[in-house]
Design a protein around this nucleic acid. Structure first.
Lengths: 157, 157
DNA sequence: CTTTGAGTTGAAGTGAACTTCAACTCAAGG
DNA sequence: CCTTGAGTTGAAGTTCACTTCAACTCAAAG
């Protein structure tokens, strides 16, 4: 009866807009069968893929990287629990790194609030190796990629 | 001698590209005097503004919101330490919330790796913890992009 | 003075992740 | 059969945060 899902159903159950699902398909992140009338029919396993995509995005991973990760899943068989576990554990590292960076930023910000200085030299908020930079055009990630070596010093205002 | 900075100097000292500084100026985030030859000269206090902007971005705040925050600084006088501290402490709340969410996501992901399931009902990755209402899983995305009412349930793959 | 490197402008381009649109077709109830 | 809501397409539009470009001018060293 409901062995396959329409795009509307997949959208409703995943919380992802139909337009986004079509977009994901164009990028090769998900796949669909077609009916005689050319409409998409999704296997239930696609729901899990969509779940993985959304979770990955929350971890701060680009669709491009997510696609690469999904491509590493076995094409021949339906992914098993351990397949998903393997992917997730990689994301876990990323997430931990992000948490570490944000925590450091918060602590640095705390000490800056203490003195109200924003004197980046002393407070090390600009301390390179953790943050700043970003090369090339295009949108910035909310949390920066590593690199950059500014010499910041705002002692005299 | 260096009571004011050229755009190249401000760029070097802040680690922000000149094009970005001009862009910030267009958005009203920073300000510059002009020389007779129409070149920008920045007061040293602008360095602190740029510092605040970059830190704010790392906290995950949009330029639009940053502008709003900067607009709340007194226009008449040079901002004091406590002015900056006031702004920073607001950001600190945001940062803490983000850390909290990331940490929860990591913990949820951990439990998912344990069973490798990504079965969002059981692993609660999609469950905000309390609002599992009614029949079936009333599960939702933890951080929905837009509004919506997804009912996620991937039990059968 | 000449050269060179730094600065100026507005307009257009970039990349990510989508959404919106117009102009259709398909599927199901009455 | 007819209507209606759901689905189809490619192309274009949107937002954010910038960068790149062309075509200049300015500032300082030699």
């Amino acid at each position: 009866m409901h062995e396959s899902l329409t795009i509307g159903q997949l959208s409703a159950r995943s919380g992802v807009a139909p337009s986004a699902l079509r977009f994901y398909e164009r990028l090769g992140l998900i796949h669909a069968q077609r009916t005689g009338g050319n409409q998409r029919r999704y296997a239930r396993s696609e729901l899990r893929r969509v779940a993985f995509i959304r979770i990955s995005q929350q971890v701060g991973i680009s669709l491009d990287e997510i696609r690469a990760a999904l491509d590493s899943l076995p094409a021949s068989r339906t992914p098993t629990a351990s397949d998903w576990a393997r992917l997730s554990s990689v994301w876990r590292e990323r997430l931990n790194e992000r948490i570490r960076l944000m925590t450091k930023l918060r602590d640095d910000l705390d000490s800056c609030i203490g003195c109200g200085c924003l004197s980046l030299q002393r407070c090390a908020l600009y301390n390179p190796g953790d943050s700043l930079g970003g090369e090339g055009p295009g949108a910035r990630l909310v949390l920066p990629r590593t690199e950059g070596e500014p010499e910041v010093d705002v002692r005299a205002s």
